[in-house]
Nucleic acid binder design. Structure first.
Lengths: 226, 226
DNA sequence: GACTATAGGTGTACGGTGTACACTTGTCAA
DNA sequence: TTGACAAGTGTACACCGTACACCTATAGTC
């Protein structure tokens, strides 16, 4: 009886650690994410993790690469615009699921999924006829927009749709008289009833950017010069 | 002799604490910024700070508002596009000086400079004839782009201009064979010699967005309906 | 001038963090 | 059976934010 292993837990592994880490960060946020908490979640003593990841930084690197792996690569079956649109929507969704990753997507040692992603996006643009320099610009605008939007969306999410007005009001009262901020008052008054939808908002800006890029691409296509 | 005050240091104050905090974060980064370090910088014991700020969170709120206060408000003497362009450039510069603030600009309790800024920007757009909903969209795209670009710029800054190729090469080698990422190879090969300038890059995307917004504004102006 | 309230700075202590280092234990090869 | 090695443990250290009790110097009032 003492011989049979009493509910032996399956052993740790790098991918098991990474997966649990992502889940914990999803649920507790980056603030509430700690090596000790992760160890507890895995039913193990903190130092056990260090047999599978070098340290917390390297763990975060791996977590970010998991997020990258969840983003749809641009399909080569579509025109460049549809392909970029889909990968942008997919990126936003991934960042919504993993809000803790937003500030870290480009700041860590890139993993394989990261490199594959960047290579595929650049390939999509070059394949669509963007000259090199313009492709770099096009990539830069899109990613800046996507990451920046995700950031805003996460931060503003603290005000639930219909409490936004209330929140703005309280703030203004704290900081000064309401009349000092007439346009914020307008937002507080009109936004709640306007059926604001951040997915629509995201698509609006995205399409504006893609439209501008297509226009420039066509100009360049008539007068080429890689 | 014992009577005369021996080099009495000037007393702390909330603004002195905030200013020193910004300076320390500028120099040490958010990672290296601690209450204890700040206290040391001010020649004082850590707990002394708590007589002037409630806690670290509230201190960060105040620091972010200082950053906001350094951003030029849109001038009402200019057409909307020039005004927005200047405030965007000014924002990028402020975020470049204070890289630690990038992820926090919209995530904390807004201070007076923050509210004033947002109100002025919204006022500029409304005054230029943007209908309410479009003004909200226009604001959203611009800020998403600005914050996202600042984020990228900070993260990519680890690779100095001419070491970028080298860095990319080393990474690819770590993670897989170079041939797997032909477009990253192209970037590594061409970017260094292309005189890449992130200020130019920023303006390129910004103008693309402003151009798109102006186009939509004109359409709307012909068929109005606030 | 004596008395007291108060604001500003101090010292100690507690529970949290990441992780270095030495240890046990369980598994498989020879 | 032995011995190597991988995986998990326990202890310890330096750092973090900050609660709480304390001191001290100044300002106001009588």
């Amino acid at each position: 009886m003492a011989k049979q292993k009493i509910a032996t837990r399956e052993p740790l592994s790098r991918t098991r650690v990474l997966r649990a880490a992502v889940a914990l960060a999803d649920q507790a946020g980056l603030e509430g994410f700690s090596m000790r908490g992760l160890a507890q979640e895995l039913g193990v003593v903190p130092m056990a993790l260090y047999k599978h990841v070098a340290n917390k930084d390297e763990l975060l690197d791996g977590m970010v690469d998991i997020v990258f792996s969840e983003i749809e690569l641009p399909s080569s079956d579509l025109d460049w615009r549809s392909a970029m649109r889909l990968r942008a929507l997919s990126t936003r969704e991934a960042l919504k699921r993993h809000g803790w990753a937003i500030g870290m997507m480009e700041s860590r040692h890139p993993g394989p999924a990261n490199l594959r992603h960047h290579d595929a996006v650049m390939g999509c643009l070059r394949g669509a006829g963007f000259p090199f320099a313009m492709a770099v610009h096009a990539y830069s605008v899109q990613d800046a927009y996507i990451y920046g939007f995700a950031l805003q969306e996460r931060d503003l999410a603290f005000e639930t749709p219909d409490s936004a007005g209330e929140a703005a009001r309280r703030r203004a009262e704290t900081v000064g008289r309401l009349e000092d901020y007439p346009y914020l008052v307008e937002i507080a008054a009109k936004l709640p009833g306007s059926g604001y939808d951040s997915a629509v908002e995201f698509a609006w800006g995205l399409d504006l950017i893609l439209e501008g890029l297509e226009r420039l691409r066509q100009v360049e296509a008539k007068a080429p010069g890689d």
